[in-house]
């Protein structure tokens, strides 16, 4: 059990930010807790004190304004998974949220926590970087917006300052007619940390792909976009042969990134499978994933 010398449960964001500002880095913000509670129990994470964010309902909501979706950082995976708005406008994120852990973890874990935890395999983060999502970080000094991809800087590492809290995640809704998808490869169907995950957005203009975004997780230290793979789609028409070419390109990229790591043999082969499965689903005529 963690030996906490301080524990705060602020009722407002301002109060939470003030606590963090005063604490000199001694306090850690607690969101859902699904990662840090067991880590503290095992002594892997030492915390002097916690700022429990659970009462900040102001940052637990999903909204849309014009062309942008805003997700409060304390929104749980379950809320995202079942949100009609996210399902309609960014189904890749709903699918990614649905792929996290187990029902219990999804009702507790939050999207902000998923970013801050900076796991290489974070499911929703792969979807978010593919969406070019931005995180809003607040401190008593003000707020800033940073691309989620730029906030992450290695396994378990972020550029979040100790006085800051991620309060909101925003992204532009993919243009109408775009298709989006997410796929996860785990050792089991549930409760699996992704061996790999893949998110794709494509926009079609007159039968040709005019815009593509491809994000891969659990390959590098953090999920990120792969421009080479995006370029391999742009200008092409959806077809069986494009799926095959994309799969080979994905294998080449993963080989390049992983080099001689032990997981390379498996992941280079496996990425072809998930790439084919996902593109096949997206290119089929079903209305699934259409914005």
């Amino acid at each position: 059990m963690p030996d906490l010398s301080e524990y705060y449960q602020p009722q407002s964001l301002t109060a939470a930010l003030e606590l963090l500002a005063k604490s000199n880095g001694k306090l850690i913000p607690l969101a859902g807790g699904t990662d840090i509670v067991p880590a503290m129990g095992k002594g892997e994470l030492k915390a002097n004190g916690l700022v429990d964010l659970s009462k900040l309902s102001e940052i637990r909501r999903i909204s849309m304004d014009d062309s942008e979706i805003k997700i409060g950082s304390l929104t749980t995976f379950a809320q995202i998974e079942t949100s009609p708005l996210i399902q309609a406008k960014a189904s890749l994120l709903a699918d990614a949220a649905a792929a996290v852990g187990s029902p219990q973890i999804r009702t507790t874990g939050t999207i902000g926590g998923n970013i801050a935890n900076a796991s290489p395999a974070a499911d929703t983060v792969t979807a978010l970087v593919t969406l070019d999502a931005q995180a809003r970080l607040d401190s008593i000094k003000g707020s800033r917006r940073v691309l989620v991809s730029e906030l992450l800087c290695g396994v378990g590492k972020t550029n979040i300052h100790p006085q800051e809290i991620i309060t909101e995640i925003t992204f532009k809704i993919p243009s109408t007619g775009s298709k989006t998808g997410f796929i996860k490869l785990g050792r089991r169907k549930a409760l699996a940390i992704a061996r790999m995950n893949l998110a794709i957005i494509v926009t079609l203009d007159n039968g040709k792909i005019s815009f593509a975004r491809v994000g891969l997780g659990a390959v590098g230290p953090n999920p990120r976009r792969y421009p080479v793979l995006e370029n391999s789609l742009v200008g092409q028409s959806p077809s069986e042969s494009l799926i095959d070419e994309f799969a080979i390109e994905a294998e080449r990229e993963v080989t390049r990134v992983l080099g001689s790591r032990p997981s390379a043999i498996y992941k280079c082969e496996a990425v072809k499978g998930i790439a084919r499965d996902l593109l096949k689903k997206m290119f089929s005529d079903s209305g699934q994933g259409v914005v």
Binding site: Y7, V37, P38, D52, S102, T108
Partner: peptide, 24 residues
Amino acid sequence: GECGACSVILDDELVDSCLILAPQ
């Protein structure tokens, strides 16, 4: 949070009671 033996219902949702601190 792997086994779910500690599952309880918290405000109509299923949670693992080993993954959250009591103050939450």
